[in-house]
Amino acid sequence: MGLIKNWKPIVKRFEEKLTSWKARTLSFGGRLTLIEAVLVVAPKNKGGLGVGSLAASNKALMIKWLVRFKNEPASLWARSITAIHGDSRCHSYIPLKSSIGGVWKSIVNLGRKSQIQSINAGNSTLREMFPDLYELESDKRCFVSDRYIMNHESIDWFWGSGNPLSNANNIEEWAACLSILQNVVINRDSDVWLWKSSEKVADFAVSAVRNELDYIDTIKETKVLCWLHWIPKKVNCFLWRVVLDRIATREALMIRRFHLPSNQCILCNNTLESADHLLVSCETAKQVWLIIFQWMKLPIPSYMISVVQVLEIINSYKSQKNTKRAIYAVVAATCWNLWKMRNEIIFKQKAFSVAKLIGDIKAISFTWIKNRADLGELNWEKWRSFKI
């Protein structure tokens, strides 16, 4: 997948769905909608935007070829791989000549990192359980069918190696191995490789592997996000960026070496403007949160220092499902309107008003819930008293 031509189908699909002038006018939420329409989509409950990782998809597709190599040994391409990479000295389940570069080498190296292993006996392979027998075996690439015969309904296992069991230790290990093999049920169907995830074993599926890879290296802070459909997508994305400290505050711009006339918070003009300070710990923001919590009839926290902490607090409240969703929507509206107010002060030189900001928070959260939630009896009079 490192070649440019491999990405041409994806680029072509983008070009078919988007002209150049539309690309410049799309909002963040619009871009996300486009990506979801063109690429794979994964769950959002692990801290992402819901867009599956291309790297995970690529790895899952590469691993698929390893499974197909073992499950389709008679196919022309598998026999070609064996002819090129296999020899009498190769004891690996997946043949590879390290001196030969290319796609197959990348696939096999990825498979080794994915810990693709041999047949298991319990939690270990027979090779791991009986290393001396494995060392003594003359044909380490033999098939299971080469080591037993069917005697009516029973299976007789035998030591078929060209090297005899020469000492008492080997004989004792073989007896222990036989005791395990006696419980094995032989299926006459062709052997296939399966995919083991945790304790579940199932047929290999690219989507299952991709999802498993997407769940790795999750960001703990984003677990407080709900991705609520009552809230516009751009606001959900905004909260996600806030939690990751990825909005363009003065602190963030200075880190990116932007030259600013001041790095102080525009609301209090007293502290470095970071995301958490602007939206939560600023004295002006605290005043707004105090009024909002009183309006929602929630206990006022003794201290709040970050957006993650605010979301953890509201997630800990015990209430009805719709009430909890409404609270989350109000918190999102509060962060969103504080950010909008900050931008209007900077770029439009508007005066700051706590009363106007509170009114905007109540109005916009009511509009979201009225139009997006299935709460037919909700009206403005009930909302003003926060009665869901």
Rank of each mutant, 00 (worst) to 15 (best):
T19D: 08
N211I: 04
G162F: 00
A205Q: 03
W380Q: 08
T284E: 11
S306C: 06
R188T: 08
P9N: 03
L26I: 05
A332T: 15
N123R: 04
W77L: 07
H91N: 10
N151V: 09
C142V: 02
S138A: 05
I100R: 07
F347C: 05
Y303I: 05
W77R: 08
S179R: 10
R147Y: 01
E173G: 03
R384T: 14
P131H: 01
M341C: 11
G48N: 14
S190A: 12
R210F: 02
N170H: 15
G2F: 01
A333G: 15
S197H: 14
N315E: 05
E137F: 00
Y317D: 01
I247L: 04
N71H: 07
W104R: 09
N343S: 11
E15C: 03
I291A: 03
K348V: 09
K223P: 01
P301V: 07
Q117P: 00
W65T: 15
F347Y: 11
L136H: 04
P43R: 14
L165S: 04
D191V: 07
S274V: 06
I346P: 08
L34T: 11
N45R: 13
F158G: 01
C265R: 10
T33H: 06
V330F: 04
M150D: 05
L279W: 13
G50E: 05
I149A: 03
I10A: 10
W339F: 04
L18M: 10
F238P: 10
L194I: 03
S316N: 07
H91M: 03
I231A: 10
K223F: 12
K382F: 15
K200N: 09
F352T: 08
E72V: 00
S353M: 10
I35K: 13
L18C: 12
L39A: 02
A83E: 13
S281H: 05
E153Y: 01
G122S: 03
N58G: 08
K340L: 14
F28D: 01
R24K: 11
L126D: 07
N187W: 01
D217S: 07
W193L: 12
F204H: 01
W159V: 00
L375T: 09
K200M: 07
A351F: 13
V108A: 06
Q117M: 12
F204L: 02
L253K: 11
K105P: 12
Y328D: 02
W7K: 11
C142F: 00
K362R: 15
I345S: 12
K286L: 10
S166A: 12
G376T: 12
I216G: 08
S353L: 09
K59L: 06
L26E: 02
G122Q: 04
V354I: 13
Q117G: 11
F204N: 00
T218S: 12
S365E: 06
I94E: 05
E283H: 02
S138H: 01
L278P: 14
I186W: 09
I119H: 14
I100L: 13
G101H: 01
R384C: 08
